[in-house]
Amino acid sequence: MSAEPPRAVLERLRAVDWDGDWDLAAGHSRSRALLMREHMRRAALWAQAYGAGEKWPFFDVTEFVDPAFRLDPDMESELEDYVAHNVGTPSTARTCRGAVRWAALRAESEVALPELPDPYEPLLLMYGRGGGYSIEEFIDLYGVMIPYGKFESNLNAEPFLTLAPSTLDALDAGAAGRITYYAKISEGYPRSGPRGILRRRLVGREAKTHDEAFTRALRWEPTEYLRLYELGHNDIDHVQISEREAAAFIESTVKRLGGSW
């Protein structure tokens, strides 16, 4: 779990464009959706641990972990002033307060904590990639809408643990259309450690096909692999994978090659 000081978290919030940069949000729609889903999963874990299911998914974890905890008065005044003048929706404001209070709790309190992932880091990253959200029948991320899902389904959702900015940027890069990811597998290169990954994008009403591989240049580049495979000209096999699995491969590749997106 993060030990980021509360002042640093507040500064991260100050850097967010809460007025709605639609282009920025739309350009990061895939990563923002993944980050929101990961928040929903983590929030469900913390809600389960502290009997806060009715408050899920946007709540102040500190209120349940240590009800007696109080933020430094000067920090609280500064936080409240910032939230009141910049953060629009009550739900988003609640999570901003919660993120700063959580950082302060981690830095100042000796209360025992369960081994659970940081409850606010996915949201903080999401805010920085295009602002907040609004709540209607779905969660509107200003570029994509995602369903709430049930508490239990979020509790058991597949984790999204690859939160490096370079990984998130790679997932967003040129990501127009409906995307399916594939891993190239063979002997010695299982699904968990494939030879490489590809994505097929179907764009527009006519579903124009774009096939791309994530290359050693750390970017998506056109590939003929899937077309040749369909024609029977490739011996290397492949399997469909999730976006989270694709993210894990991207992150490991960036680390291995020592580059940055």
Rank of each mutant, 00 (worst) to 15 (best):
P67I: 06
W261Y: 11
V87R: 00
N86G: 00
E245L: 07
G130N: 00
L45S: 07
S134W: 00
G143C: 03
N86W: 02
R30W: 15
E4P: 15
S2H: 13
D172Y: 08
I185T: 06
H238Q: 10
A248D: 10
T95S: 03
V61L: 10
A8H: 14
A164V: 05
R200F: 15
P114C: 12
G98A: 08
R70K: 07
S242G: 14
Y189L: 06
A173D: 12
K55F: 15
E187C: 07
P6Q: 12
G131A: 01
R14H: 07
H238P: 11
V111D: 14
D81C: 04
Y142D: 09
E245M: 13
L218T: 08
G132Y: 00
L198R: 12
P122V: 04
D237P: 12
P57I: 03
E251P: 14
E212Y: 04
S31N: 10
R201Y: 14
N156L: 13
Y182M: 13
Y142C: 09
L257R: 10
P73A: 01
G88A: 09
I197D: 09
K208W: 13
K255T: 15
Y229V: 09
G258C: 07
G88L: 07
K55V: 10
N234L: 14
T92R: 04
R227Q: 14
P73R: 03
A8E: 14
R216F: 06
L171K: 08
D237T: 13
S2T: 15
Y181A: 12
Y148E: 02
M36D: 07
L45D: 04
H233K: 10
L228I: 10
L10C: 10
I241M: 08
L155Y: 02
G188A: 06
E245H: 08
Y181Q: 14
A47M: 02
A104N: 01
T215C: 05
L45E: 04
A43T: 02
N154A: 05
Y142I: 12
I185M: 04
A52K: 03
G196R: 13
V16E: 00
T209Q: 07
N156P: 05
S29L: 08
K255D: 09
V144W: 03
I135P: 05
L35Q: 04
L202Y: 13
R42Y: 05
T92Y: 00
R178H: 12
D72C: 03
I179T: 11
I139R: 06
L24F: 02
V61Y: 06
Y133M: 00
P90L: 04
V144S: 04
L124M: 13
K55N: 12
L257H: 13
T253F: 09
E221R: 02
A8M: 14
R191D: 06
D118S: 06
F151S: 07
L168P: 05
K255W: 11
A175T: 08
